[in-house]
Amino acid sequence: MNPSDDWVRWGDHWQRQPTVDADRLRRRVQRKRRQMQVVLGFECCAALFAIGQVLHLLLDPGLGLRWKVWAGLALLLVAASVYLSLRVRRGTWQATADGMPELLRLTAARARAGIRLAWLNIASIPLLIAFTLLVAAPWLVPSRWRHDPALEHLLLLQVEINGVVLVPLLVFFVVYIRRQRRRLRHVEALLRDYAE
């Protein structure tokens, strides 16, 4: 049989598939766009609030130098988070109109960047803990909090809150790195296929 006959015959079966309701799909896209705008607005508000708080700390004349240094570093952290969030969002949509090899190369580059970023985050957690302990050292001396129930309560609360946040965060980054490596292997295999 002629190869083109096969494609025509199969194409006839293929095109009998059910078709999506276009109006329903358009409404879903409208809803999704609104949701994305709300999330973006919320993220902007949260970033502005965080920057405002840190600037308040920086400009407070009653605070010592070590807290001002801590606030400066926190400001850098907030700025980096906002930048990364915007970069990831832009990258998600950037390649929608590229050819498949370009899309795969960009996906691989993003996976590699994601892995590097996750390792950076994993490394920054003990660094942040060490720096915070250094800044808070005068309040951590046992003779200071043993006879001050309010300070003891505050320190315990900090340990609990940070433990609850940091341990899942570490697990998240490890899982994320494994997932990105798997993605990278898949993309590299596809790129080899396309190069054949």
Partner: peptide, 20 residues
């Protein structure tokens, strides 16, 4: 919105089959 709706109507079958 009107242009986008027309585009979805015109390519609904193609999009459905690619997604499938």
């Amino acid at each position: 919105e009107g242009e986008f709706a027309a585009l979805l109507h015109g390519h609904a079958g193609l999009l459905s089959r690619i997604a499938a």
